[in-house]
Amino acid sequence: MTTTIEERTELSHLRWLEAEAIHIIREVVGEFDRPGLLFSGGKDSVVMLHLATKAFWPGRVPFPVLHVDTGHNFPEVLDFRDETVTRLGLDLRVSAVEDYLADGRLKERADGTRNQLQTQPLLDGIERNKFDAVFGGGRRDEDKARAKERVYSLRDAFGQWNPRNQRPELWDLYNGRHRPGEHVRVFPLSNWTELDIWRYIEAESIAIPSLYFAHEREVFERDGMLVAVGPYSQPTESETVRTELVRYRTVGDMSCTGAVASDADTIEKVVAEVAVSRITERGATRADDRFSEAAMEDRKKQGYF
């Protein structure tokens, strides 16, 4: 059988996703005045930033990055963030939950976790920096609320997502028009799955924080998850500490992000592990998303990522 032009010119699905994301990122820079990119050092934001560097090569990434800092950071992720900022010559802005706790604008929650406290610093960070478009690393495969969100997600002055009032998104024509005070959250990785992210990290040899690979760590079991012993997460008397070979599938507030038992210490092994995993990354590692069927939907409506 001879190869048709379609077969010769067809992109692999990973290269198609890459081309789509680069197109989205360039559209935003072409049409908005002040874009910003949410950067936590987590794998999705690292991939998004990598795509942005490709989109504008050989120039620099032409917008600042914003880190909404819970104060509950894994030290290796914070180090990674700073190294990346220096290496790429990025303009880093930080909105810190600690500042809000210090002056009483926010109060520590009873369970001590801070993912839910990020919304206010995020919205203030967007306003202070006058961002009219904010890139986020959200993927539609993560959650049923995300499954319905647009690539361009219009937010009102309170940052709220209104699922009943979304613009239809047709072809690859994005409508970024918004009124003063409104902004648009943009999700260039909308169509990527967790496995796509890992395969792309492998294909492009993208540097990611070391805790995504198997390492020995002191952990204890809580709510069926392995939680690291650290400054923000101490075991109670009934919880036994043991040293285990673990890695992280997601990175967030250290006090409520769980590790998974794993011996995957290279990117190839991680890809192989994710490919056969029978549990979603949020189910495995995010205590805050497991307690309510609509946890993400509720947080998004309040202006969350």
């Binding site: 539609r140 049923k144 319905k148 979304q166 909308s190 169509n191 799955t193």
Partner: peptide, 22 residues
Amino acid sequence: TDGLRSEREQGITIDVAYRYFA
């Protein structure tokens, strides 16, 4: 493929949802 709570409450599906499989 059950959707958002606001949809479940009204027993309707309001929007296109995207799914991924391989």
